[in-house]
Simulated scan of single mutants.
Amino acid sequence: MAQGNATTLPAVGFVRQASILPVLGFSATTLWRRVKQGTFPQPIKLSERVTAWRAEDVHAWMAAQGNSQQAA
């Protein structure tokens, strides 16, 4: 986990739902709805009970959201 600010995502590696929700600013329900709709990156099943996202994918998604909001 990142040092200092608890809402900072690592640049690379895997991040779990509890780590990304504070950064994204929406609920777990919205997160999973967006995954299902294909508007948020698909998670990776690391084991039977562990699901995570690639930090790189989350950062790219966040950057794209900023770009699309600026274009609107």
Rank of each mutant, 00 (worst) to 15 (best):
Ala60Gly: 04
Leu46Ala: 03
Phe14Cys: 04
Asn5Arg: 14
Lys36Gln: 13
Ala72Gly: 14
Thr39Leu: 07
Leu46Ile: 03
Thr30Ala: 13
Ala28Arg: 15
Trp53Asp: 00
Ala72Pro: 04
Ile20Ala: 00
Ala2Cys: 10
Met1Lys: 07
Gly25Arg: 12
Ala71Lys: 08
Gln42Phe: 01
Arg34Tyr: 09
Ala60Cys: 01
Arg34Glu: 07
Gln70Cys: 09
Ala2Arg: 13
Arg54Val: 02
Trp53Gln: 03
Ala2Ile: 10
Met1Leu: 08
Phe40Trp: 02
Arg54Asp: 07
Pro10Leu: 06
Ala28Met: 03
Gly13Ile: 05
Ala52Ile: 11
Lys45Thr: 12
Leu21Asp: 02
Gly4Arg: 12
Val50Tyr: 01
Asn67Ala: 15
Ser68Pro: 00
Thr7His: 12
Pro22Ser: 06
Ala6Asp: 14
Thr8Gln: 15
Thr30His: 05
Arg49Cys: 04
Asn67Arg: 14
Ser68Leu: 12
Gly38Lys: 07
Arg16Phe: 06
Gln37Tyr: 04
Trp61Glu: 04
Val15Phe: 08
Ala72Val: 11
Gln65Lys: 15
Leu24Arg: 03
Pro10His: 05
Ser27Asn: 11
Leu46Gly: 02
Leu31Glu: 01
Pro41Val: 05
Leu31Pro: 00
Lys36Asp: 13
Phe14Ile: 09
Asp57Cys: 02
Gly4Ala: 10
Val15His: 00
Thr30Glu: 12
Val15Met: 08
Arg33Leu: 01
Gly4Ser: 12
Glu48Pro: 01
Ala52Cys: 11
Ala6Asn: 10
Gly13Arg: 11
Gly25Pro: 08
Gln69Leu: 14
Val58Tyr: 00
Ala6Leu: 13
Val35Pro: 00
